[in-house]
C-alpha cells in the first residue's frame, strides 16, 4: 500500500483522484489545493507518490515539483495534465517528475502508472537475482 499525496487546485479532481486511489487500495495521506500546501503536507506525511496538477494558481506544478524534489529527492511525482501541455510536462520531468497522466484521470491510468513505477523495482530486483544465479551456474 502506497502513501499518496494529491495536489490539485480543483476539489472535484482531488475527490475523483482520492476515490480512485482508495479503490486501488492505496492510502491518500493528504490533499493539497496549492503548491505551498503540498510542500507543507509532504513534510508532514512523507508520501511515496505525489500526483501534481500542472496548472495551479500562484505556484504551478512545475515549480512545486522542483522545490519538492530538492527537499525530498526520493519522492516520486506524477503530473496530471491535459492535451497541449506537452512542453510543460517536459519541464516538469526535467525538474524531477517521473511521468504524467493525461486527464481525464481514470482508474486504469492510475493503476498502470503505479504498477510501472513501483512494481518495476521488484521486477528488476528479481531479474538481477536470476541473472546472478544463472551466472553462478555457468
Amino acid at each position: 500500500m502506497l502513501n499518496i499525496l494529491i495536489v490539485d487546485d480543483s476539489t472535484i479532481m482531488r475527490q475523483n483522484l482520492k476515490r480512485i486511489i482508495n479503490d486501488l487500495g492505496h492510502n491518500v495521506t493528504g490533499e493539497a489545493a496549492s503548491g505551498n500546501d503540498a510542500i507543507f503536507l509532504a513534510k508532514e506525511f512523507t508520501p511515496d507518490l505525489i500526483t501534481m496538477d500542472i496548472t495551479m494558481p500562484e505556484m504551478d506544478g512545475i515549480e512545486t515539483t522542483k522545490i519538492l524534489k530538492k527537499k525530498y529527492p526520493d519522492v516520486k511525482i506524477i503530473m496530471t495534465t491535459s492535451h497541449g501541455q506537452e512542453d510543460m510536462v517536459r519541464q516538469s520531468i526535467k525538474n524531477g517528475a517521473k511521468g504524467y497522466i493525461l486527464k481525464p484521470v481514470t482508474k486504469n491510468k492510475i493503476e498502470d502508472i503505479i504498477v510501472k513505477l513501483f512494481n518495476n523495482k521488484v521486477k528488476h530486483a528479481k531479474q538481477e537475482e536470476i541473472t546472478r544465479e544463472f551466472s553462478g551456474l555457468v
Binding site: 506537452e86 512542453d87 510536462v89 517536459r90 520531468i93 526535467k94 517528475a97 517521473k98 511521468g99 504524467y100 510501472k116 513505477l117 518495476n120
Partner: peptide, 25 residues
C-alpha cells in the same frame, strides 16, 4: 525544437519509466 529537446532529455535520464514518459510526449 520540442522534438529535439525531448529526445535530448531522454539521454540524460537513466530511468526507463521517465524515458518512456518523455517519449510519449
Amino acid at each position: 525544437e520540442f522534438f529535439q529537446n525531448v529526445l535530448l532529455d531522454t539521454l540524460n535520464e537513466d530511468d526507463e519509466f521517465v524515458q518512456d514518459s518523455l517519449i510519449s510526449l
